[in-house]
Structure formats: structure tokens, C-alpha cells
């Protein structure tokens, strides 16, 4: 899908590409270069297909969160409460499942409900009372983190049988896998969360690209005032962007919960920053109006790949993760900034 919208055409005519498509192409190219580079130079792990699917398994929640984050950023806002929400959801669901009569469906409903509640309040404050989204979601983050410890202070694992069964469900990918030491073929697998994440990516991509509502998000992010004059309901559009973002954070919270299988106040710490970083690496601009969901997915994968590379290169001291992540972000930002500046110059001349 990504090829169709970007890379193929891009080399022929970079100048005519929209900002969104140009940045998207860069992200995808860099991701593949990086991964292929890792395969060549580090070999081993990266040659196994399961390594890639493990990245997917680990990052599915982050991909979902980042989709929501990209949407809000495209609309010109930001939501830093998503990490806190994920923690609150995993803790609440864990407590619910631990109670007598706590059902799987109930916990899922609870996750969605928490997401929607956050979206409702934050969206209303941002869109209709015109309060800065940074402040609103900052408060949202504080609230979610605080509430998590109020719900339950100590972290604990969930023992609910049906949940554990769901958590451990592995979907084998036919025909893909590797041969282990004993010479047996081991099928590569993904967790359920990955399917959910891919569904979210596809739905969000379709919404943003092929619906009128989707284009409205871009318009509002590009120029709020103009969007209003063009007859778009700016407030409603902003509200919806926060609503959807929080809803996705709700789903992501549950996917995260399924992945880790426990509740803890320190879960998903820094997830909001990772989501923002993924979106940016994926070509979304914080100024609004530019971005693409496919890019966001690749942004998340790029970040995770870099971390894998660092670990397999033997640099496993704690600080390396922070520093490489930052270096990666820095690199992308500078590349984007330089390219955009060049483009502007080209347009003038």
C-alpha cells in the first residue's frame, strides 16, 4: 500500500509531492535501509523472521497509541495523557479481572469506557473551551497516573484464566519461520495485539485518506481560520480528533495489558513521548496539517529496531537506549527540517 502512495512516484517528481508524501517516503526508506543494514552487519537475530515479529508484538500497543497521536497532531493538537491512560486501564482491568465475576468482556468494555471518558472531557476542554491541548492533556496525564495508584498501589499479575488464555494466544504465520538448533522448523507467530494494531492502522489510514472527515482533520491542522471560512466545523473536528485519540488509547491500553498481563502504576511510562517521537519520525509535523498513518507505523518500528540493534551490538548498559533514541529523533528532525527548508527555497526561486 505504501508504495502506491509514495516511493514509486517520488523519485520521479519530488517537487510535486505533497509534504505528507515526501516525509512518508523518507521514513519508509530509512526504516528499510536500517533493517537491511542490521541484517547484513549484525546478522544472526535479524535474519530470523521472529525478530521482526517480536518487534511487532512488543510495539503493537505503541502503534495504536501513535495512530491516535498522529491524528491529534495532524489536527494541530497534542495529547500527552495517553501513557497515563494505558497505565490506568491496565491497572483497572487487572483489578476488575481479579474480582469475583470479573469477565473478559467486562474488562474490555471498561478499557474502552475509560478511553471515551478521557476523550470526552479533554476534547470538550480543548475544542469548545479553547484551552491549550498541552495543558489539558498534561492534567489528563497527572490525573491518570494518580488515579492508577488510587485504584491499586501495588503492581500485580492477573490470574484470571480466560484472560491468561487470551494473552497467550499465538497466531502462527503460515510458511514464515526459521529452523532452530535441532533442525526443526519453528513457525513465526504474532500476538492478538498485532492484529488489532494492523486493523487500527488500516482503518485510520482509510479514514484519513478517503473520507471527508479525514480531510477535515488536515484542513483544521493546516489553517484553523481558513478551515472555518471553508465551512468546516472546526470545533467539532478538534473534538473528534481528541475523542478518537483517547478511544485508540483505550484500545492500546488493553492491548498493552494483554501483552504484559499485569497492572502497575509505572506501566507505559514515557509512552506518550515515544508516541510523539514515532509520529515525528513517521513524518507527522507538530505544527499540524502534515502526516500519515503508514508513516507513523514505520516510525514506531524504526524506534524499536534501533533499540534492538543497540542491544544486539552489545551496548546493553542502561543509558544507551536513551541516547540512541534521542540521536535517532535528532537525526530525523534535522533531516526533515533541512528538506522542508530546501523545498521552501525551491518554491520561491
Amino acid at each position: 500500500m505504501e508504495k502506491k502512495i509514495g516511493t514509486k512516484k517520488s523519485f520521479l517528481n519530488i517537487k510535486d509531492m505533497t509534504d505528507t508524501n515526501l516525509l512518508l517516503s523518507i521514513t519508509i526508506i530509512v526504516f528499510f535501509l536500517m533493517y537491511i543494514g542490521a541484517m547484513i552487519f549484525l546478522g544472526e537475530g535479524f535474519l530470523k523472521s521472529q525478530t521482526f515479529f517480536n518487534i511487532l508484538n512488543d510495539q503493537s500497543a505503541l502503534i495504536i497509541v501513535s495512530c491516535g497521536m498522529s491524528l491529534v497532531m495532524i489536527t494541530g493538537g497534542i495529547d500527552i495523557s495517553v501513557g497515563g491512560m494505558a497505565a490506568l486501564i491496565s491497572m483497572s482491568c487487572a483489578v476488575l479481572l481479579d474480582m469475583k465475576g470479573g469477565s473478559l468482556v467486562g474488562s474490555m468494555g471498561l478499557a474502552i469506557l475509560i478511553g471515551l471518558a478521557f476523550g470526552l472531557v479533554q476534547g470538550y476542554l480543548v475544542a469548545f473551551l479553547d484551552i491549550q491541548p498541552f495543558i489539558v492533556s498534561l492534567a489528563g496525564m497527572f490525573f491518570a497516573r494518580g488515579m492508577t495508584t488510587i485504584v491499586n498501589t501495588a503492581p500485580f499479575n492477573v490470574a484470571n484464566e480466560s484472560f491468561v488464555a487470551l494473552k497467550n494466544t499465538r497466531l502462527n504465520i503460515p510458511g514464515v519461520g526459521s529452523v532452530n538448533k535441532n533442525g526443526d522448523f519453528v513457525n513465526a507467530y504474532v500476538e492478538i495485539g498485532v492484529i488489532v494494531a494492523l486493523l487500527v492502522v488500516i482503518v485510520m489510514f482509510v479514514v484519513l485518506r478517503w473520507t471527508k472527515l479525514g480531510r477535515n482533520f488536515y484542513a483544521v491542522g493546516g489553517n484553523k481560520q481558513s478551515a472555518l471560512m471553508l465551512g468546516i466545523n472546526v470545533k467539532l473536528t478538534k473534538f473528534l480528533s481528541h475523542m478518537i485519540c483517547s478511544f485508540l488509547a483505550g484500545i492500546a491500553g488493553y492491548v498493552y495489558f494483554m501483552h504484559v498481563g499485569s497492572g502497575s502504576a509505572s506501566h507505559a511510562s514515557g509512552a506518550e513521548m515515544n508516541a510523539i517521537a514515532s509520529s515525528i519520525i513517521g513524518g507527522t509535523m507538530l505544527t499540524g496539517g502534515v502526516g500519515n498513518i503508514i508513516g507513523t507505523m514505520f516510525g514506531t518500528l524504526s524506534l524499536a529496531t534501533i533499540q534492538n540493534i543497540v542491544t544486539s551490538a552489545g551496548l546493553d548498559e542502561a543509558w544507551w537506549t536513551g541516547i540512541t533514541n534521542a540521536a535517532m529523533l535528532c537525526l530525523f528532525l534535522v533531516i526533515q527540517s533541512v528538506i522542508m527548508a530546501q523545498r521552501k527555497k525551491a518554491q520561491v526561486g
Binding site: 509534504d19 505528507t20 471527508k212 491542522g221 493546516g222 481558513s226 478551515a227 468546516i232 496539517g289 502534515v290
Partner: peptide, 17 residues
């Protein structure tokens, strides 16, 4: 000018309608 610079020419003509 009250159009959105980040959208295409065609989009600017048809958005919100």
C-alpha cells in the same frame, strides 16, 4: 487568502462542501 496551504488545490476547492 483563507485556504489551507497544506492541502491540494482540488481539495481546497471541494473541502467543506
Amino acid at each position: 487568502i483563507t485556504l489551507c496551504p497544506n492541502l491540494s488545490v482540488a481539495e481546497n476547492m471541494y473541502i467543506g462542501r
